[in-house]
Write a protein that binds this DNA or RNA. Structure first.
Lengths: 173, 173
DNA sequence: GTCCGAACCATATGTTTCGGACGGTGCGAG
DNA sequence: CTCGCACCGTCCGAAACATATGGTTCGGAC
């Protein structure tokens, strides 16, 4: 209904999740974020509560508020919201990925390679296992967005394991 | 000299770069960030000016200010700064990498795989070439932090290319 | 020499993000 | 009933961020 106060990636995450759910409260969003997206894109929970408010003000969501007790707010996409989401999805992006790895940073600045490698390896191996277990459970749904993202995650975790293993052994990665 | 107002990764980036340079102005930091780190860890330039101020207030840097003209501020590590940096470097980190990839996000939410793949491939192939060219130029310095970080970058770019190529062909990544 | 424009350097501004603290609400166990 | 814990939501101060703006230096044209 309003002007266009800059839609961020977070905005679209919220829109997309609400579309998938049909209707949702911020708390439900928070839950599903933690289970899925949270693995590769952090969205602090305060955002998850604040963003729908902004989007509703911009006319992309409609709000229904419980009267009693917790006064939960339930959100749905408006037609305008649908449209905004669809446009974003259909537009392939030119933006690069951003990779922020504290371990890498220390390595870059001269931290002890073996020590870093040991710590990072245990993290990445655990993550990799977790992903692979998940992957085993979704046979046949690999081409969904979720499945593809999972495979991408697996690929990168493998790469990290490979990299840190070489570092640990003092070989050239 | 002061208390401990939370040192962020950015803080340590500044400390580490100043240590490497001996003494530096924010502008010089900005330059070197753009040439090196900037590839995998973005630090907006306003930060690069603001952070040394905070660090000086915390007693980790000493400041020398030019009197005339540009009134440049030159920073050096204090002993305390040295210590903080060293501690950070020596402590292997338990934190996970954070990967924020807008293309991935769209894929996850059901964006058109082929379209996304085409756009992302051209980006990642370019980046990969750039890194490999750089790698060719630093023969013999591969074990430095810079060399290792570069190899990590190359590994991940290759993984991206592999992944998006499969997506583009409609195969299972 | 001096004037102009470009590159260099620095700070200010308003907004958004972030993480963590804090505070209500409701339900089940005892 | 009432206590305690899990559930749910908001608030707040600090940092991050993008962008705009403003001053300084220098070199070349004239």
């Amino acid at each position: 209904m309003s002007s266009n106060p800059r839609l961020s990636p977070t905005s679209f995450i919220v829109l997309a999740l609400i579309e998938a759910a049909g209707e949702a409260t911020p708390y439900e969003l928070k839950q599903v974020v933690a289970l899925t997206l949270g693995n590769f894109w952090s969205v602090p929970h305060a955002q998850v509560y604040a963003e729908p408010e902004r989007l509703a003000a911009a006319g992309l969501l409609s709000e229904r508020r419980e009267q009693g007790g917790r006064r939960r707010r339930h959100y749905k996409l408006t037609d305008e919201g649908e449209k905004a989401l669809r446009e974003w999805l259909d537009e392939p992006t030119e933006e690069m990925a951003e990779l922020r790895d504290p371990g890498m940073l220390k390595l870059f600045f001269g931290g002890d390679p073996k020590g870093l490698a040991a710590a990072q390896l245990s993290l990445h191996r655990r993550k990799l296992e977790e992903y692979e277990a998940l992957d085993g459970q979704i046979q046949g749904h690999v081409s969904t967005g979720f499945g593809l993202a999972l495979r991408a995650g697996i690929g990168h975790e493998r790469e990290w394991v490979r990299f840190w293993e070489l570092v640990e052994r003092g070989e050239q990665p």
